[in-house]
């Protein structure tokens, strides 16, 4: 899941500047789960913005809506009838959602209300941690299901660095050393032999931006396979 956090209110206010008619557009998928931009958070943000405007006596109208998803064109069409009424759309989606909204309604100013942080999992209520860097070449089968590309700050592929300290990382002693986790897990699985193989330098070409993907079922001559 994509994890994001809301920008500070002052920053959002500064972006809105003198806009009078504002539509806060929520997204009901990843950012709703990570409590950053779903229906509830849209209500809270709209409420905060209303209170600010009310206290300063600023003329402003703040409406709200939450779409099922902002990263799929189909869900944006329902908004088309309304966007003309607004000066700006304040999107509480991840970066992808904000961009698609801007693409779909290209005559409108679209503002991001969130900072998109990472692809991660929930550690517990309200706590998330990064788990995937979308490197395009998964090697979790070799590392006991623990990703060294994401969880090791140095992206090491052949064992820990000299900074591993009783299972903790030297970059941030609060974090576990990814390679200690990998060793312990492979030990438990009886697959320490996997560590004998030397991993060649990682091919970072699949990470070249901007990435694009065409599903094999949709590959035609006009849409050649992505490489």
């Amino acid at each position: 899941m994509i994890v994001a956090e809301r920008k500070p209110l002052d920053e959002i206010e500064a972006m809105l500047a003198s806009a009078e008619r504002v539509l806060v557009v929520g997204c009901g998928t990843c950012v709703a789960v990570c409590m950053a931009g779903g229906e509830k958070e849209v209500e809270l943000l709209a409420s905060e913005l209303r209170m600010r405007a009310q206290a300063s006596g600023q003329r402003r109208r703040i409406d709200q809506v939450t779409l099922t998803r902002q990263c799929d064109r189909e869900y944006l069409d329902a908004l088309a009838a309304y966007v003309e009424e607004y000066d700006v759309l304040l999107s509480t989606a991840c970066g992808a959602g904000v961009q698609l909204l801007a693409e779909r309604f290209d005559g409108k100013l679209i503002l991001p209300a969130l900072n998109t942080r990472f692809i991660g999992t929930a550690e517990g209520p309200g706590v998330w941690s990064q788990r995937c860097l979308a490197c395009g070449q998964c090697l979790l089968h070799l590392t006991g299901g623990v990703c060294p590309v994401t969880r090791c700050p140095k992206n090491l592929l052949n064992g820990p660095c000299g900074g591993t300290n009783h299972g903790k990382c030297e970059v941030n002693p609060e974090n576990d050393c990814a390679w200690t986790l990998i060793y312990r897990r492979l030990e438990k699985l009886g697959r320490l032999d996997l560590l004998d193989a030397i991993q060649p330098p990682k091919d970072y070409r699949p990470m070249t931006k901007p990435a694009r993907l065409v599903h094999p079922a949709f590959q035609t001559e006009s849409a050649p396979p992505t490489k």
């Binding site: 709209a46 009310q54 206290a55 309304y82």
Partner: peptide
């Protein structure tokens, strides 16, 4: 409260038509 006796800010929730 600083919000008291101030003009309320206009606001509504959009109701999108069913798919």
């Amino acid at each position: 409260s600083p919000l008291r006796s101030k003009q309320a800010v206009e606001s509504r929730k959009l109701v999108l038509p069913p798919d």
